[in-house]
Design a binder for these strands. Structure first.
Lengths: 171, 171
DNA sequence: TCCTAAGATGAGTGCGTACTCCGGTTCACT
DNA sequence: AGTGAACCGGAGTACGCACTCATCTTAGGA
């Protein structure tokens, strides 16, 4: 899969870029200039593009990491906890909403698998009505994530808003 | 308020630009280039900037019109109908979501007034729980609008998703 | 230690887009 | 009709940003 092992300095720089990009994109959104990422990583811009030929590749790499982390978290959460986790992440890290966007339909498929399992479990436990379908839950997740970010919800408002959604899901 | 009456041709062009902008922004989102609006209006780009010195002024003018129309509709709707109307508009006219964004906090105040009335009425009619507050409803409205647009909900999915939200609001 | 290919650098290129400016055109008033 | 102010056209400017490339640097094997 991975062609050749990277040279030590290259590996170090790659990690720095990834870390810097996560920080910059979280603060400024994925619209932030690549030069900012380079500066934050203490690296020239050419180096960033050597590792990630396209800006989208860079965003994609971060998203992939995040997706893996969320997938991991899903294993130990119940549906409502997971829901809250994703929305909170969206509120704090602007670029997370890109994950929820249509364009990234590929990677999100794996997330939807995890949510599907949580939904099934929640139904069995009687926490969610049986007729609720996966796509509605995904839609609500998207909506809440977008809303939390773009609406700038406070922690209190976020909690109350999610409470309404959860009430709508319960029997 | 309005300084001087516009010349006839200027008035005509202004109206054309507004109509063209509404169409273009609805289709392509507010990110569409101003040149496209000028072309659609059959007018040179300089003319657009004469009437609206800034792109934001142009978007703002359209938003103001839309806001007035929604405020009018609110008088005859109940809360759930109005909610559906706004979300549907968001799904069909991309730029409507800008209305829901924080940046336009000024104009949205008037909308929130209308929603407040609808909420009061709905509570009196027993259609909504008494402890629901206005900001939660507004947050849900923002969320659903953003989600509908960026998630590309179908009419069916939109209806089912809104049904969950409405269920959460009811006693 | 030396050699070379992988890697880093950063000024430069191309492009899209908001906005300007001035010469030409048109309205509207007398 | 004549006149001047308002208006229009559209090439041009400024700017930000993704991405490139010729040149210099360095890791790491022989």
């Amino acid at each position: 899969m991975s062609s050749k092992p990277l040279r030590a300095d290259a590996r170090r720089n790659r990690a720095r870029i990834l870390a810097a990009a996560e920080e910059v994109f979280a603060a400024r959104g994925a619209g932030a200039a690549t030069e900012e990422v380079a500066a934050a990583a203490g690296v020239a811009i050419g180096t960033v593009f050597r590792h990630f030929p396209t800006k989208q590749d860079l965003v994609g790499a971060i998203l992939k990491d995040l997706l893996a982390a969320l997938g991991e978290a899903a294993k130990e959460d119940d549906l409502f906890t997971f829901f809250t986790r994703v929305v909170t992440a969206a509120a704090e890290k602007k670029f997370v909403v890109e994950l929820l966007d249509v364009e990234v339909a590929g990677p999100i498929a794996s997330l939807s698998g995890a949510v599907g399992e949580l939904l099934d479990r929640a139904k069995l436990a009687g926490a969610v009505r049986a007729e609720i379908e996966l796509d509605e839950v995904l839609a609500l997740l998207t909506a809440a994530g977008q809303g939390a970010l773009r609406g700038g919800w406070s922690a209190d408002l976020r909690a109350r808003t999610l409470a309404v959604i959860f009430a709508g899901l319960r029997p």
